[in-house]
Amino acid sequence: MSDMIQAGLQHYLIVSVLLFSLGLFGVLARRNLIVIYMGLELMLNAANLALVAFSHFNANLNGQVMVFFIITVAAAEVAVGLALIVALYRKRSTAHVEDLTSLKY
């Protein structure tokens, strides 16, 4: 156990950056709105992880309090967002972003 590498702030941050990049890639590259949504959630959780890590290593609880807010807001956002997607699907019979470009020049 003793020769195991102690996880430091950098490790957490690297994981957070990887998660964030994955999420951003999903948002940019995937076409299905549901999957884009999942990408968004991944990005939010990457931010949460970074905040908790900072909070832990700086011995400051502010970051963790922030995370609770983010989780709450994210839950509400998901509820509204999914409802919108459902409504959109009923109206247009598609959940693909290429088909939803009527708001343009």
């Binding site: 951003l24 948002v27 940019l28 884009i36 972003v97 290429e98 939803l100 470009t101 009527s102 708001l103 343009k104 020049y105």
Partner: peptide, 15 residues
């Protein structure tokens, strides 16, 4: 011309 209406274009520009 930048206003394509595509959500992902906007996201890309934003990022």
């Amino acid at each position: 011309l930048a206003q394509t209406g595509n959500l992902q274009t906007y996201t890309f520009m934003f990022a």
